[in-house]
Amino acid sequence: MSKAMVVDDSKAIRMILSKTLAEFGYEVCEAANGREALVVFEREKDSISLVLVDWNMPQMDGLEFVKELRADPRHSSVILMMVTTETEVEQMVRALEAGANEYVMKPFTKEIIADKLRMLGVVQ
């Protein structure tokens, strides 16, 4: 079973996204900020192949997390999708340049997430 991680400081958002990913057959783990997500990543020993990550979180934000993860060549194939309230073009460009593969603006629907995942080729 493929493993995914949802990183968001909102428990409700984590629940919604985890449920969607589970419906696509993913085993899902969660983290409440970027720092915690990096710890989970180390613990899971490179088994996570997909991460949905918020931008604005305490301790370490999503953009920093993306940069940190991409700085490690072991994680170059991990699919990173930002799911955030940031809707400025400049922010999107920053996220994509930092190494995010895709970007979803909140509010989102299950269909929006599913279509993006299909587009990324990670679900049927």
Binding site: T87, E88, L96, A100, E102, P107, F108, K116, M119
Partner: peptide, 20 residues
């Protein structure tokens, strides 16, 4: 609308071909 560009459109296309 935001919800219309959020669905199906790759972010790379959004930043390249749209203005907010």
């Amino acid at each position: 609308l935001q919800i219309e560009v959020n669905r199906g459109l790759p972010a790379a296309y959004l930043v390249k071909y749209f203005t907010r």
